[in-house]
Nucleic acid binder design. Structure first.
Lengths: 221, 221
DNA sequence: ACATATAGTGAAACTAGATTCACAGCCGAG
DNA sequence: CTCGGCTGTGAATCTAGTTTCACTATATGT
C-alpha cells in the first residue's frame, strides 16, 4: 500500500515530530530511520526525499530544541512580573518540558551526538551558555531592582537555578515517571528563592544590622 | 606480534580500565570491543576470553561505579565532622569524580544502556535512590543535632544537593573542561549551606560571601 | 488531457560493529 | 617431555542499521 503523497514541508514536520517522539520513548539511540519511517507511515527510503541524511535530521532537531528553549525564555520574560516571578515562571515551563519528553537533557547527554563532531558539541555548549546568559541577565535585573541579594554572583546563581530542575528530571527519567518532579521543584524553589531574595520583612529592622526573621520563621512547607 | 599471555583476572581489570578511559574520552558510544582491544594491546577476539560479551563487561562497569559511589559516601561519612561537614566533603569528592572522568552521569544518560533493558534502568535508579537515601539520612542527622533547619524536607533537600554538582558537571563536559566546576560548586555550596543551616547567631550568618570558609573544597581549577 | 516535477517504493549495496571459530603458542603438572 | 588447558590470533560470519538506485505513482498547472 502506497502512502499518500504529501508536500515536503509537511513531511519534514511529521518526520521531526516522529523523531522527537522516539527520543521521548527510547532516547537518541531509538531514533532510527526505519523507526521514523514506520511511524510516519512511509518506507525508510522515503525519508531521503526530505532529508539528505540522518545528520541533517539531527541538525534540524537541535534547531527545534533551541527554538523551544528560546520561546520558554521569551514567554517567561514577557510575563510582566519582577525577576523572581520570571524565574518561577521559567522553572514551571522547564518542568513542563521535562514531563513532556525529556528531550533536551537526553540529546545533550547522548554521546552519539558528539562522537567525532566537535562542532556539535560546541553548538550545544553555546546553546546552554546563551540560556545561562539570559538567566544571568534576569538575575542582575532582580539585583538592580532590589528583589535579589546584591552580593550574589549572578552567574553562579544561574547555574544553581539549573540545579533546581535537572536532577529531578533525571530522577523522573530513571524512575519512568514515578518521581514527583512537580512537588520537588515546587519545594526546592521555595528554599532557593528564600536563599537568594532580599528579605523584606527585615525592612523594619533595617539600618540596625540585627537579627533576620526570614530564615527562622516563614516555614510554609 | 603476539600479546603477552596474562591471567584472566589481570586482563579483566585492564579491560575494565580501558573501557572507563574510553567513556571519559568519548562516552559510552566509544566503548567498542575493537577500541578496548587496541588499548589493552590485544585483538578484539581476545576480549571474549575474559568476558562473555559486551553486556557482561557493561554489568561489571555498573558494579564498579556503584562501589565507587559507595566508597565516596563511606569516606565522607567517616570524616568525623557534623552533618554539614559530611555534605561538604561529599560534594568535594563528587566534584573530583566529575573532573576525573564524568563516568557516572555519562553512563546514566546513555540510552544505549537502557534500550530494551528495563532491568538496567531500574538498577541505575536503585543506585541513585540509595545514594539519595543516605544523603537524606545525613540531613536528618543534621536536623536532629541542630545544624540543619528542622522544617526542611530532608528528601527534597537531598535532591537539591545533587543540583549543586550535576549542572556544573554537564557544563564542564560540554565546554571540554573549560567551565570552572570547582569555583562554581564552592560558591554554590556557600549559598546552599546558608539556606539550610540553622543560624547560630544572626551577626555571623549575614556577612557577605559567607563567613564560614569551605574546608575541603580545594580550589585548583 | 498531458507533461513534469515531486513523492513513494522495494531491493540491493554498504557500514560498523559484535561475535564465532579453528588454529597457534605458551605454561605448568604429571 | 609432553599433555591439557589456557590465552591469543586472524579470518569469517552475523546483525542492524543507513543509504542508493532504478522504477512507479500522483498531484498540479497549462
Amino acid at each position: 500500500m502506497r502512502a499518500e503523497k504529501l508536500g515536503s514541508s509537511i513531511r519534514r514536520e511529521q518526520i521531526a515530530r516522529a523523531a522527537f517522539a522516539l527520543i521521548a520513548e527510547g532516547g537518541l539511540k531509538a531514533v532510527r530511520i526505519g523507526a521514523i519511517a514506520r511511524r510516519v507511515g512511509v518506507t525508510p527510503s522515503a525519508i531521503y526525499r526530505h532529508f539528505a541524511g540522518k545528520d541533517e535530521l539531527l541538525e534540524e532537531m537541535i534547531e527545534l530544541i533551541r527554538s523551544r528553549l528560546e520561546s520558554n525564555l521569551q514567554a517567561a520574560q514577557e510575563s510582566k512580573g519582577d525577576a523572581l516571578e520570571v524565574l518561577e515562571e521559567l522553572l514551571a515551563r522547564m518542568v513542563g518540558q521535562i514531563r513532556e519528553n525529556q528531550t533536551i537533557p537526553r540529546m545533550i547527554f547522548a554521546d552519539d551526538f558528539y562522537l567525532g563532531r566537535p562542532d556539535r558539541k560546541s553548538r550545544a555548549n553555546a546553546m546552554i551558555r546563551s540560556f545561562l546568559d539570559r538567566l544571568t541577565e534576569t538575575i542582575r535585573r532582580g539585583q538592580r531592582e532590589g528583589q535579589i541579594r546584591p552580593e550574589l554572583d549572578a552567574q553562579v546563581t544561574s547555574v544553581m537555578f539549573l540545579g533546581l530542575f535537572m536532577p529531578p528530571g533525571i530522577l523522573w527519567f530513571l524512575s519512568d515517571g514515578g518521581f514527583d518532579v512537580t512537588r520537588q521543584t515546587r519545594e526546592a524553589w521555595m528554599v532557593f528563592r528564600r536563599s537568594i531574595e532580599v528579605e523584606r520583612d527585615a525592612a523594619q529592622s533595617r539600618g540596625r544590622g540585627g537579627k533576620r526573621i526570614a530564615h527562622s520563621v516563614r516555614g510554609r512547607k
